[in-house]
């Protein structure tokens, strides 16, 4: 799927949500062999025990975060590596890579943006007692998807 950037820039929140959700769904389907589906945010509040984040700079400037519980992060790592995955280092690495691939897949779907948008290396926070203050004070697009019945929140915050 490719989206015309001139169309997209008219209304970020309205038009980018399905692109972001598709980017997430594809990453989980290809790398973990499982389907994730958007869920009502009001019914599913993801834990923030693990937060992976990656910076975007250039045509898109901001941050993309992926939040989930420690148990779900462990399931993601095992989905990628098999049952051998278990250490926190592997869980952190796996979640960081998922975040990296979602961001890359998302920007690659925005025709004309992928050429002019760079990604940082991902970072992962473990432990939910924090507040994230992003300097990207523009539009925000957030979705919650269910992975093996557990919610994962994916949020894109961009500079206006």
């Amino acid at each position: 799927m490719s989206t015309d950037i001139s169309f997209v820039t008219r209304s970020h929140e309205e038009n980018w949500l399905p692109v972001l959700e598709l980017a997430v769904e594809e990453v989980f389907e290809i790398m973990l062999g499982c389907r994730v589906r958007p869920a009502a945010q009001s019914e599913h509040t993801p834990s923030r025990e693990f937060t992976a984040m990656i910076g975007l700079a250039g045509a898109l400037c901001g941050i993309l975060t992926v939040c989930c519980s420690a148990k779900t992060a462990g399931h993601v790592a095992r989905g990628m590596l098999g049952d051998t995955a278990g250490s926190e280092a592997e869980v952190v690495d796996a979640l960081g890579e998922i975040c990296n691939m979602i961001a890359g897949n998302f920007k690659n779907k925005l025709a004309g943006t992928d050429e002019r948008c760079m990604l940082s290396v991902p970072s992962v926070i473990s432990g939910g007692e924090y507040n994230l203050h992003s300097m990207a004070n523009g539009n925000s697009v957030e979705t919650v998807l269910l992975f093996e019945g557990a919610p994962i929140a994916v949020c894109l915050q961009l500079e206006s």
Partner: peptide
């Protein structure tokens, strides 16, 4: 690759 997980997957 800077990700050990990705090196294993490759």
């Amino acid at each position: 690759d800077d990700s050990s997980v990705m090196r294993k997957i490759v």
